[in-house]
Structures are given as structure tokens and as C-alpha cells.
Design a protein around this nucleic acid. Structure first.
Lengths: 230, 230
DNA sequence: TTTACTTATAGTCAAAATGACCATATATTA
DNA sequence: TAATATATGGTCATTTTGACTATAAGTAAA
């Protein structure tokens, strides 16, 4: 058994990325269309092989960038999926990664083994190959759980946003309705938001105040955790 | 490339188990002494190789049983650790598993590549090989987080226990002191515990009432989550 | 120029939960 | 019988919550 080259792949181990985006009050997931291989022409989660020389985290970032053009985001490891029959031709164990992004910030540039890359509404996802549907379900549940225990939104929303926009994000993730007044009160007590002293423009109703996250408080709450029930 | 036999190992992928136990108010971790290999004679987390035929979850259970004798417990996947240099002789990515058990329920029977298996107090752990120390730290932090968002104790405590015993468990995990009276009140409101209508025996002070978990409520809270701040 | 409509923002109030205590009960051991 | 452990229950001011109500500030239609 010779020592493998640093850039040769470990073909029993792959990465799959679950990238959630938010736009117009709706939660999306990023998929790529396979240009080659056994699922050519099908939409699937962006994924690929880990090489001998790189860490698992960097593999995830490299693969996501090469397939979709998205880079410089925080990818969090979600879970490893390893049923023996999850992949048809051989035994492949996959490590799923997870990220939340603001769709407006990234233009999708399909590349490598992807002929296309697109956002799909979380409720209008095409049939996915392998066990990607269960990975997606697992990830969505993870997000629902996450939203209740730490602040989210920093990566999903534009820098300046209204309180209603933030509330819509929570509602899209939790798939529920929240009371506007109580939502505001809760947020204001958390001291998580800073006023921009600016108003919305070009809306056909009373303009709402714009807020931004207080990075300091945000990171603190991320460490300590919050109990967000509303 | 021939098709690998179902029982041949994927030698780039291992499992490591983080088994937490609770006894006399102290939190322990289970380690095994390696009988062979590059870290012979050293204490480390119980771990081994995944084979082609089995799921990752079953590999974790098989490996734990063969090294320590412990079986029939709920092993939860924790995280995959994959720095390129984490293992000295070759590239190995490891999937860490996590469990909470009642030490009294299991007699440790070292086997396979383990010459010994023992509980170590979480604060008196010997120097661990590879990145096992960071896996342990990660797992302990995960436990601290977990304890605040879902009920724990079902697997860690004997069937019947006193409220003080449960409080000691929370204190050991959170590394803090809790108010006795407020702890009781919180627990009683959760409706998580059922009275056994029995008292402690052989204690040199007023005997405390014994409780057991209400499995129904416990599982429900596990799904829905709790906010446990005290 | 009203009037309707939309969203923003503030406030009320009873009920529940929290945190820091205090008080008493019931057991063993010196 | 006194000292001591731990068990168990209660108080109370403060904070948080959930469900509402009310008013403000814009645009668009009548």
C-alpha cells in the first residue's frame, strides 16, 4: 500500500452541502444539476469527494465554491450519513454541511461537475437522488431547533432590515405565525438590534425603521444561547 | 478495483465513542487501554474501524461492545473530526459518538484490542492520544448545551432516584450550584417525574422520596425541547 | 379631499415564571 | 437530649408571557 498523493480522493467519503437562503419571506435551498455521473441531469445537493491533503471543513468550502461559485461563508458541520446502501454503486459515507446565506449577496456560477445551480423554495424541491431528501429533512429540523436556541439572521438578512422582515424569517423557519407586538418586545429586551435611524423607502405604507445586528451582542448570545419561545 | 468484502474495513474512517457515566455525584468518561498498535499501553477513547457492510451507527455499537462489553445503549452521533494530521501514520477521519449511561448497569469487560476499560472522573483524565482530548472537550460542551434544551437523566440515573440525586447530576454537568427549592419547583411543574411512593433506605438523615421518570412525558419533552435555566 | 387600506409602533393587564430567601419536618448520631 | 444532616414546603417582590387594544403614519382609491 503506497502513500496516497495529497490530492487523490478518498472515494469512500464525500461531502454534501445544505445551503439555506432567504428571499421575499421565503426559505430556499440551493441545488445543483449534475453534468456527469450516475445522476446526470438530476438536481441534487452540492457535493463531492474529500482529498487526502485537506481537512473536512476545507473540502466542504472547496466543493461548494467549485460547484456554485459561493465562497467565504461559514459552513457548519451537520451530520455524517452512513447507511451501507445510501449510494448505489459503492459504499460512500457522506458528511453533510450546513449554512445560512443571504441570496442577494451571491451570484450562482455553476462549475466543475455542475451544469446549473439554483435556489428552490423549501416546499417546492424536486425529487432528490440517494438519501438527499432525508438529509434535507434532517437539516431543516436542525434549523428549526437552532433558531430557538441561538440568534440567527446575521447571514440571512441584508445588513439593514425591518423588524417585520426579521419576524418573517422566524415565521418561515418555524412554519408558524408570531404576534408582532410580542416579537418586538422580546427582541428589544435582548438588546440584539441597533437602530440605524433610517426608514424604509419606496413602500406604499408607513415606512418602518431599519435595524442592524449588534455584532458583539450577537456573538455573545451565540455562545451563551437564548431561549426563544414566542 | 474489485468490490470490497462486506467485512473488510474502510481504513480511512474510524469511530470513537464518548461514553459519559454518573456515579456518586460525579461525572465520568469511559476509556480503554490499547493492547496493540501505535498507542499500545495508552488510555484512549474506545474506537475502531468501520467495515463495508455495516451502517455507521451499527459500527459504533459493535466497536463499543467489543472493546468494553457495553451494549444496548443509545449512541448518538456527535461530530466527525477530520483534520489531515489528526492521526500520525495515515489519513484517518473519525466519527465521534456520544452516550450517557448509568455506570451501575454495566460491568466493563475489556476485549478485542483493549487490555483494560475503566471509568475516569471527567476532571482527572490521563493524557489522551491523537485529538481525543479535543473530542472530549467538544463532547462535554455538547452535553452542557444539551442539558439545557432537553431532559436528561433517564439513562444516567437508576430507575428510582431522589430529587437531590437529579440535582447533583445537573450540577455536575453544568459545573454550578442550583437552588434546591427552585429546582424542585421547576421539576414539579414539568410533570416529568412520577412519585414511587417509596422512601430512601439506610441513610443517616431524613429519608427522601423516590421518583422515576414518566417515559411518555420524557420522550415528549425530548421531541419538543425544554428551556432549562436555573 | 375624504375615506379606505396597509403596515408601524406603543400600551394594557392578568397570569405565569423566576430568584432569593426563610421555616419547618424528620431522620441519625454524639 | 442536643446537634446535625437532609427533606420539603412556603413567601414575596420582580420579571416575563400571551393575548389583546389603540393609535400613528403613510399610500391609494372614491
Amino acid at each position: 500500500m503506497g502513500k496516497p498523493r495529497a490530492d487523490s480522493i478518498i472515494d469512500a467519503l464525500s461531502i454534501d452541502c445544505l445551503i439555506f437562503g432567504f428571499k421575499n419571506g421565503r426559505l430556499d435551498i440551493l441545488l445543483v444539476k449534475h453534468a456527469t455521473g450516475i445522476s446526470k441531469g438530476k438536481w441534487a445537493l452540492p457535493g463531492g469527494w474529500i482529498t487526502y491533503g485537506e481537512s473536512v471543513d476545507s473540502a466542504a468550502n472547496r466543493i461548494l465554491k467549485s460547484l456554485t461559485g459561493i465562497s467565504n461563508i461559514y459552513l457548519e458541520q451537520l451530520k455524517t450519513f452512513g447507511e451501507p446502501d445510501r449510494y448505489p454503486t459503492k459504499r460512500v459515507i457522506t458528511i453533510a454541511y450546513f449554512a445560512l446565506v443571504n441570496e442577494e449577496h451571491y451570484s450562482l456560477i455553476p462549475g466543475f461537475t455542475a451544469s446549473d445551480a439554483q435556489w428552490f423554495n423549501i416546499h417546492e424541491v424536486p425529487k432528490l437522488p440517494y438519501d438527499h431528501a432525508s438529509i434535507l429533512t434532517y437539516g431543516f429540523n436542525h434549523l428549526k431547533h437552532k433558531v430557538r436556541h441561538e440568534p440567527i439572521g446575521f447571514n440571512l438578512l441584508p445588513e439593514k432590515f425591518t423588524l417585520l422582515r426579521l419576524q418573517e424569517l422566524y415565521e418561515a423557519i418555524l412554519e408558524t405565525q408570531l404576534d408582532k407586538s410580542n416579537f418586538r418586545r422580546k427582541l428589544s429586551k435582548m438588546k440584539l438590534l441597533k437602530e440605524c435611524h433610517e426608514k424604509q423607502k419606496d413602500v406604499s405604507h408607513r415606512a418602518a425603521a431599519l435595524f442592524r445586528f449588534d455584532k458583539q451582542v450577537y456573538d455573545q448570545l451565540k455562545r451563551d444561547g437564548i431561549a426563544f419561545e414566542l
